[in-house]
Design a protein around this nucleic acid. Structure first.
Lengths: 141, 141
DNA sequence: CAGGTAATTAGAATTATTCTAAAATAAGTC
DNA sequence: GACTTATTTTAGAATAATTCTAATTACCTG
């Protein structure tokens, strides 16, 4: 099957480099893990996952890598109430829905919605980012 | 000057009772503190403030009271990134703007905006609450 | 390959919060 | 008003997530 709509699959190292992140093996491993398993893992969960491939990586490094990825906008950090930070490689503008029963869902947000939200602010505010979180229950059925 | 638009100012104890919260002196003190000083204090800050009137109150009690007030929807808990939870007695629907330079602002949200946000979700999701947070800088001038 | 910068590591430290168990308070009952 | 029971408060210990520290390792530049 030919790839009709996708560009050539850019190696992870290049994606990092393109975003100004020096591509170390740890950073690649962490980022790859987030790309592969697109739930919303905590730092601990990422640590557990990457240990399989990189058994010598440390938790501090996982935190460092995640921070760098977030700072360079390759990954989003999601916070819910007092829970541990969760990480998300979905870069499209989206909100998050936190199910009380556990689990976090991405909710796509059309760009107009972002524009409207920004419209609530006084003109000269400099917005770095917006976060929209829903909290509740998904249908149990 | 006659009070033209306000109802009789209901004592704090009654407000608590009306919301199903047993009005203990600690709860009244904590709630009153939030009503009076409408910045977005952390539990520690509330603790420091209420100690002036109630020098024997404990930090655990402040946490307990804040939790009860939040559970009974008299107070909102606001979380930003990894910072400590902040509390807010503004019950009108509103978003929060976190200034990197410090400080948190309430941003009014018209009900239509809430409706639109809810429209992003599948029909049968049961939403307990929505949180909209902006992050950035206010004009320094 | 020497020298410098940046990244990683293990473990200690910190911080906000929650837990625990006991004492105090309040509410309801006779 | 004393008695019982449920709730709240309290001080301090415990926990959990994250950050810090200092030492080591990897990478790049000349």
């Amino acid at each position: 099957m030919a790839e009709t709509h996708t560009h050539k699959p850019e190696p992870v190292a290049d994606v990092l480099a393109d975003h100004g992140v020096r591509p170390t093996s740890q950073r690649e491993t962490v980022y790859r893990s987030l790309l592969q398993q697109r739930d919303h893992p905590t730092a601990d969960e990422v640590f557990a996952r990457v240990r399989e491939n990189a058994p010598t990586i440390s938790l501090a490094t996982v935190y460092n890598c995640l921070d760098v990825l977030v700072q360079h906008k390759l990954v989003k950090a999601v916070n819910f109430e007092r829970g541990p930070t969760q990480y998300c490689a979905n870069l499209a503008p989206h909100a998050h829905f936190h199910d009380e029963a556990g689990g976090t869902l991405d909710i796509d947000m059309p760009p107009e919605m972002i524009t409207q939200l920004l419209g609530l602010l006084p003109e000269n505010f400099d917005v770095k980012h917006i976060e929209v979180n829903f909290h509740g229950r998904t249908p149990s059925a």
